[in-house]
Design a protein around this nucleic acid. Structure first.
Length: 540
DNA sequence: CCAGGAGAAC
């Protein structure tokens, strides 16, 4: 007998399976296990998983299922999870819908549900709707808790009414709700947001006097508000206060400070604070370094930024493509396009593959696309090269003959003959004349793949486009020319080593084959480029 | 189960 399958086992598998759909398949398959029945726990985990990954259809259908199998009054946690996940993905209406349907499904929302939906409404700026939910909550005689107050405080702060927020804070004790540091700091942040340093600081001191001290998370949020505005000094003042209370700064704290210092241009101080990080026994992370690299690059301190990259390597922290993007962007802003290109190639050479942001940065440099595409082709990362090629068109930056050459080259090297062929045709269609090397490459690939029809088609296309050795033009009789020209082209290609001897043989036989000669090429759909289809002669 | 945590270019 196999050991019994327990709900907690299923729940943990669901939790640790990365792929929500795979988790769902497992979840469904255990239903047939002898004696196993899903519980509130397993349903909750599965619904949470689906919602977290934005699989809302599956999530909703599982919610219908759980309603049939579990006492509906126990499902509040499930609904709150769904509300949160809809909120995380910006689906405010859907979040509200879940909330609204709760009592219809015999689940009376508690204060937590009201809070969850109110918070989403406030986060997305639906302040009036949030207030309506609050009024309904009072109507239903649901008692607000400290979370409710904090959400309402936040709402007042977001609508730039910190004084109203303060009044609410002060009313909390009389409503039987104890103040805590989160509620306090939300108000304090609201004052700082409106540049009311005096009120904010007084309130901060008042909070500490009541022996209410923020934890590092809450504190970080507060100084983030300040540092974003460039007020590092005030942040330091606050930090010194909480340090005395035994609060320890963490990497978030340092990063926020460094951002603030960079913002006000105190770059050397910002760089020095790396030592402070280490003094605290913390190990600077890539995020921290990148913050500094960004600050330095934005101020045009490129050499220092590059020096910092070396330093991070010395400390066992590898830069990433973001790191390079920041410096590349700095160079572009300074107008040093060629240096930006050099650095980009340098990054590629070191194995840091440029991403979409690299190109947004470099977009001004007009030949940059070709450099980039070439780099990718050399790395045989042809997908990225093609993506760039498409993007280049979208940006109104027309590919030139060279672009085609390198990209066709890339496809041939990676054995993607369909794409190589399509690009060759597209190249010609755009009015460019590909080089014989390019023709040769595609022809070789086609012949190796026994794609004689297309290969021969290309030879005829070359003839029609006049891409032929000079000698062909000395043949005056049209029918003689028609027979001789393809042969001459193929021989010329072999002579100049653009095609292999094998390809030559295949082509030579192919052009003599009358069936092939007369046969029109089948219409090919370009797989990934819309519905346009081409015949080999370039007609659509 | 509900409030409060650093991340990038245009």
């Amino acid at each position: 007998m196999s050991p019994a399958l327990l709900p907690k086992h299923v729940a943990s598998v669901v939790k640790y399976q990365r792929d929500p759909i795979k988790a769902l398949a497992m979840f469904n398959s255990v239903k047939t296990e002898n004696g196993f029945k899903h519980t509130l726990l397993t349903y909750k985990c599965m619904i949470e998983k689906l919602g977290f990954h934005g699989e809302f259809e599956e999530m909703e259908s599982l919610m219908s299922e759980v309603r049939m199998n579990i006492d509906n009054s126990l499902l509040e946690g499930v609904y709150i999870g769904a509300i949160r996940n809809y909120g995380r993905k910006g689906k405010v209406q859907e979040a509200v819908d879940v909330f609204e349907r709760m009592d219809f499904y015999n689940c009376e929302p508690s204060v937590q549900s009201y809070n969850a939906v109110m918070n989403i409404l406030v986060e997305y700026g639906y302040f009036n709707q949030a207030h309506k939910v609050y009024l309904r909550m009072r109507d239903k005689v649901v008692i607000p808790d400290v979370y409710t107050f904090t959400i309402r405080i936040k709402s007042f702060c977001r609508t730039r009414r910190p004084h109203v927020a303060l009044r609410l804070l002060n009313n909390m004790p009389s409503q039987g709700c104890e103040l805590n540091a989160v509620a306090y700091c939300t108000v304090i942040g609201g004052f700082y947001e409106e540049n009311c340093q005096v009120e904010a600081y007084q309130l901060f001191e008042g909070m500490l006097e009541q022996c209410i001290c923020p934890d590092i998370t809450t504190f970080n949020k507060l100084i983030h508000t300040l540092c974003k505005k460039g007020d590092v000094q005030e942040s330091e003042k606050l930090l010194n206060k909480v340090l005395k209370r035994g609060i320890l700064p963490n990497l978030f704290t340092f990063n926020i400070f460094i951002q603030g210092l960079c913002k006000k241009g105190a770059l050397s101080e910002a760089v020095r604070s790396l030592d402070g990080v280490r003094c605290e026994g913390l190990k600077p992370t890539i995020v921290l370094y990148n913050t500094l690299v960004k600050g330095l690059s934005q101020r045009g301190l490129i050499l220092q930024a590059l020096q910092l990259i070396n330093e991070m390597l010395d400390h066992g922290c590898s830069p990433n493509i973001w790191t390079y993007n920041l410096v590349i962007n700095g160079l572009c802003k300074m107008g040093c396009m060629s240096d930006a290109n050099i650095l980009t190639n340098d990054a590629i050479a070191k194995g840091y593959l440029p991403d979409i942001f690299t190109f947004n940065t470099l977009i001004d440099g007009y030949s940059t696309y070709n450099i980039m595409i070439n780099s990718f082709v050399e790395k045989l990362n042809i997908n990225m090269a093609e993506k760039l090629f498409r993007e280049m068109g979208d940006k109104g930056c027309a590919p030139d003959s060279y672009t085609y050459r390198i990209i066709i080259d890339g496809f041939c090297k990676t054995g993607n003959i369909d794409s190589g062929y399509d690009f060759l045709i597209e190249n010609i269609e755009k009015g460019f004349i590909p080089s014989l090397t390019t023709f040769g490459q595609v022809l070789n690939c086609l012949c190796v793949g026994h794609r004689v029809l297309e290969a021969v088609g290309i030879i005829h296309l070359m003839v029609r486009k006049g891409i032929v050795p000079e000698v062909v033009n000395t043949i005056f009789e049209a029918d003689k020319k028609e027979v001789a020209a393809p042969k001459i082209v193929v021989e010329d290609l072999l002579k100049k080593s653009h095609i292999t001897y094998y390809a030559y043989e295949v082509l030579y036989d192919g052009i003599r084959d009358r069936k092939l000669h007369k046969k029109k090429l089948p219409t090919r759909c370009s797989h990934d480029r819309g519905t346009r289809s081409l015949n080999v002669d370039g007609t659509v």
